[in-house]
Design a protein around this nucleic acid. Structure first.
Lengths: 245, 245
DNA sequence: ATCTTTCCCACCTAGGTGTGAACC
DNA sequence: ATGGTTCACACCTAGGTGGGAAAG
């Protein structure tokens, strides 16, 4: 699979083009990952992301800042999640161990940021969030979008503006999210446009149906607002909660 | 102002083009209003819509079904709300009375459905909802979009994909929502494209900062799920609620 | 005085969390 | 037995209601 290893964090892959494009427009995009410190804390422990039948959001969230875009050109921003290696894992003796060869991957799909296309100026004004993308292990999911390999025509697929989309992963397998930036006026031209791909190693994770490493669980509880109900200290000072002593 | 009076409900205005367009594509769109019976109940009493500083959604919601579109052509769907007449109103002796000449209107803005552009096939598959549009009386609102008159270039404005948009109205004035359908591949071509406009008289309303007609209030409470807390019968059977005897 | 607007509130809907027991 | 998956649930965030007091 790999090909994204060795790509410097925040720098486009070697496979992407030089800043001078055929249309004569110049840009030199830089992309940074939001909450990098938090991502690092998870990464050091071995990030886990829960996948459920109905789809689960990622935490931390995939959020980026872009700079160096041509303000007047239009860009399409995308995210996908690809297998990080060919292994299947198990959590044994408080450690992730290789447990064999990977199961077959479902065809991966590109998640187009729902604000696409927008001008460089618009993208640079705000944080670009892909937090609405959900992860599932449900093979019979219908929220399809077009394939990562772009072999099928994008017009045959759709994604509603609410940005609801689901990607199918294998539990106990390792994955690597990738951020893509394309200068293109039109989604129809996407398959023929040059992609710039950015990989942040610290966003790598293992998909699970239930958390394996309790330190990961605790880090999620400590930082995800929706899990505040499971915190021991501070916020929920009104009662001792239901946690059994 | 008028020009939409006399337009048959669900039929395009006389000002719109014949089904045969210059590109040779044929279509004969029909548009119907969702929850027509509910809208009629409000209309018979004199519909009121609350406007607030931060913006308030409409209830009933603006939802439509489209048919007769060309499945493969792309369409942009829009909504706007225009003054229904030149008067200012007051509610006196349980009746709406004319109270003078209208105050000046703020420039009106087009609300582009966030799924736009999409194919006729896609639009016809589902109900088209504009429920995220909010009404305000706050002059210093910044959620601008391009003018209804399309005199300004749409590229100067933006609307994020979450569909959050606000329109500024005058309290105690009467308004008429309008639905627009445009066959166009590109939002940039919108100002030069032919609009088909559909007006449903039963969606007319008077903007208020507080409900005037208590029958309208009760109809809202009875049908808006978010107002369930104010219902007397049925749903909230666990207690008698806080309503003073 | 009368009418209109503003603000905070309790009460909802809608949906994102990990839990722990049940299931396979 | 062991390990992975599913499900209902309590507990949150986020935000849409009209009420009622206060303000303009």
């Amino acid at each position: 699979h790999p090909g994204f290893f060795g790509a410097g964090m925040g720098d486009p892959m070697a496979s992407s083009m030089s800043p001078m494009e055929e249309d004569g427009v110049q840009d030199d995009p830089k992309v940074t990952l939001e909450s990098k410190e938090l991502w690092m804390q998870f990464h050091q422990l071995g990030t886990e992301m829960v996948i459920t039948k109905s789809g689960r959001q990622m935490f931390p969230q995939m959020k980026f800042r872009a700079s160096g875009l041509d303000p007047k050109s239009k860009y399409i921003l995308l995210l996908d999640i690809v297998a990080a290696d060919d292994y299947r894992y198990k959590f044994h003796n408080s450690r992730w161990m290789i447990a064999g060869k990977a199961d077959p991957e479902m065809p991966k799909r590109m998640y187009i940021h729902p604000d696409s296309p927008a001008t460089g100026e618009q993208w640079m004004q705000k944080v670009v969030s892909f937090h609405k993308l959900k992860l599932t292990n449900n093979i019979s999911d219908k929220h399809g979008f077009f394939s990562s390999n772009l072999s099928s025509h994008p017009a045959n697929h759709s994604q509603n503006s609410q940005g609801v989309s689901i990607t199918i992963l294998n539990s106990m397998h390792k994955y690597q999210p990738r951020f893509h930036l394309v200068r293109a006026n039109d989604i129809l031209k996407l398959p023929y446009s040059t992609f710039r791909t950015y990989v942040f190693k610290e966003t790598e994770f293992i998909a699970v149906t239930a958390y394996q490493n309790e330190k990961i669980t605790q880090l999620k509880i400590d930082h995800n607002p929706f899990a505040k109900g499971f915190r021991d200290t501070g916020a929920g000072s009104k009662s001792q909660k239901k946690r059994p002593g």
